[in-house]
């Protein structure tokens, strides 16, 4: 038992999970237990935890997409803008201002929005893998231009829509659970299967550690990078759909604003090095949940909105400290010394 526990404690997911539990527990104590309360209304589950999961779904989806880009030593800071594009495309179609023939057709809207995300990702991928622009610069192009493109699609307006079918993407329930969770689960399972059941994950890690050596072993480095950034674009489009369904419209100026930083932070909190190499998608998902629960709990604890960001950053500092190898070694050293004394 303790053997298994020790092994698990070395897993990349261990510390993020502990942090998440600690945050939730702290919330529970401060709120006197009401934090963990769950109610069933009309067969739907309600409660703070469900809120965190639902509100965190965007970030989880983005983290799943961006983890692999970071694992190759790259980054993708265009995801927020891609979210805006995807929301703009979907809402404009549902609204009927784009493709009047398909007006109100949610399926067409979703498919084309996802396609827009794929195109955005492909663009990033070509710039990075073929043109060899540094990832942060390459994706910055779309980060800046993307919001302009989204504005062009919506003709500079905030598009509000009226479609229950579209609202379902964010607000719907299946089996008592919010629909976005199923989206997250689907993306998660898909990526886990693809990275674990094929050699994709191994190749990503190899590229992240040493892309020159990887090329020398016959790995098609460029093609893999292309796939990664395309996938990141797709995930951003998914997140864009969830977001726009949540606010019932497309607001190109604010959709996904600065969320790329939270997405990168999620991955970092999950323990994946931003220099590339070993990565863990589950850890990134937990990282996203940590960020979401910090935001939620800061609000729940009644902290004034002005200091929310400060509190958030303080917590992040603590998390990074806990993640630090040196810090962990010091702690582990203390524990093992104690264990020796007891024995």
């Amino acid at each position: 038992m303790s053997q298994k526990l020790r092994q698990f404690s070395k897993n990349q997911i261990f510390w993020p999970l502990m942090v998440l539990l600690a945050i939730l527990l702290a919330n529970g104590i401060v709120s006197g237990g009401s934090f963990f309360e769950m109610r069933i209304v009309d067969g739907h589950l309600y409660g703070r935890l469900i809120d965190i999961l639902r509100n965190g779904s965007k970030l989880m989806v983005l983290a799943i997409g961006i983890t692999m880009a970071l694992a190759t030593g790259g980054t993708d800071i265009s995801v927020g803008s891609v979210m805006a594009i995807s929301g703009a495309v979907a809402c404009s179609i549902v609204d009927g201002r784009l493709l009047p023939g398909a007006s109100g057709n949610v399926a067409v809207a979703v498919v084309l929005a996802l396609l827009a995300g794929v195109l955005c990702g492909l663009w990033n991928g070509v710039l990075i893998a073929k043109v060899k622009i540094q990832p942060i610069v390459a994706t910055m192009i779309l980060m800046v231009a993307g919001r302009g493109i989204a504005q062009l699609i919506t003709e500079g307006k905030i598009v509000t829509i009226n479609s229950d079918a579209y609202y379902f993407i964010n607000g719907g329930y299946i089996l008592g659970l919010p629909f976005p969770l199923f989206i997250v689960a689907f993306a998660f399972v898909l990526v886990m299967l693809f990275t674990r059941k094929t050699a994709f994950g191994l190749f990503i890690e190899a590229i992240g550690v040493n892309s020159v050596s990887s090329r020398f072993t016959g790995i098609k480095v460029d093609r893999i990078k292309l796939m990664i950034y395309t996938f990141s674009g797709l995930m951003a489009a998914v997140a864009g759909l969830i977001e726009s369904a949540g606010i019932k419209g497309a607001d190109c100026n604010n959709a996904g604003l600065l969320i790329e930083l939270d997405a990168i932070l999620s991955v970092a909190i999950g323990g994946t090095s931003l220099f590339g190499g070993r990565f863990s998608i589950p850890a990134s998902v937990i990282g996203a949940l940590i960020i979401q629960s910090i935001s939620t709990s800061v609000l729940a604890m009644g902290v004034a909105p002005e200091v929310t960001l400060v509190v958030k950053s303080l917590i992040v500092v603590v998390i990074c400290l806990v993640q630090s190898k040196k810090f962990k070694e010091t702690i582990a050293g203390k524990f093992s010394r104690r264990a020796v004394k007891e024995a």
Binding site: A199, L202, F203, E205, A206, S213, S214, T217, G218, R278
Partner: peptide, 17 residues
């Protein structure tokens, strides 16, 4: 070498590719 990866992964890499 692909430094951080294990001996096993380093050996399998070319064959896998």
């Amino acid at each position: 070498i692909v430094g951080e990866l294990s001996v096993r992964e380093n050996i399998m890499l070319a064959l896998q590719a």
